[in-house]
Amino acid sequence: MAKQLTLIRGLPGSGKSTLAKTLDGVHLEADQYFVNEQGNYHFQPQLLPDAHQWCLAQTREYLLAGQSVVVSNTFIEHWEMQAYVDLANTLNIPLTIKVCHGKYKNIHGVPAETIKKMRQKWQD
């Protein structure tokens, strides 16, 4: 199978990570930046821009190494995907965008009020 980039978008608890694990390719998400060597997740909002830069850099690295990549992030607004779209275009790699609408327990403990605000900003 030729390498490709798949973006999975959706609100917290929509099934992004679950779907990503069923697809071929290296699974990346910005939340992985907040997991320490012991496997504990500790979100630090002030580091979110760094986490997204890390995720994009890892995506580039794996694609350049010839591997398919699946990125599952919220991607609430279209501009949040643009760097990945540009990367796929630059590397001439097929891009697929999938949207999750499931209603599962969000594993990162995102407050309901935050999810409500994200829902209001959501761009189809």
Rank of each mutant, 00 (worst) to 15 (best):
T18F: 04
V26Q: 05
W122T: 00
M81G: 02
G102T: 09
Y104N: 13
S14Q: 02
G39E: 03
P111Q: 10
M81T: 06
G39H: 02
Q67G: 04
N106Q: 08
L19H: 05
A2I: 12
M1V: 10
I8R: 00
L5Q: 08
K121Y: 02
A112K: 04
P49W: 01
P94N: 11
N106W: 03
T90M: 14
K103G: 08
M118L: 14
Q58T: 03
N36L: 09
E77Y: 01
R9E: 04
I93M: 09
M81W: 06
T90N: 14
I97N: 04
L87P: 02
N73G: 06
G66M: 09
A88W: 03
D50L: 14
P12F: 08
N92M: 08
L28S: 06
V70W: 02
G109L: 12
L5V: 10
Q32L: 15
K16G: 10
V71M: 05
G109W: 12
F34G: 07
G109S: 09
A65S: 13
N89F: 09
M81A: 09
T114Y: 01
P111E: 10
L7C: 10
L5C: 10
N106M: 05
V99D: 01
M118S: 00
A112I: 08
L95R: 07
A51R: 13
Q120F: 00
A88R: 07
L63I: 05
P94H: 06
H108K: 15
A30F: 05
N106E: 08
K3C: 08
Q67S: 12
D24K: 11
Q46G: 02
S68V: 08
G15I: 06
N73V: 12
Q4V: 01
Y41T: 13
N36S: 08
N40R: 13
S17C: 02
C100F: 04
D86M: 05
F34T: 13
D124T: 04
T114I: 13
T90Q: 15
P111A: 11
L5W: 05
T6R: 02
E37N: 13
Q53T: 14
G10L: 05
T74W: 00
K116W: 01
H42N: 14
K116T: 15
E61V: 03
W122N: 01
W122H: 01
L7F: 07
K16H: 09
Q44A: 13
P111T: 14
H108R: 15
Y62A: 10
L56K: 04
S17M: 02
T96Y: 04
L23P: 02
K3H: 06
Q82E: 15
Y41P: 12
I93N: 09
V110E: 00
D50T: 10
D50N: 15
M1T: 11
M81N: 01
T74S: 07
T74M: 01
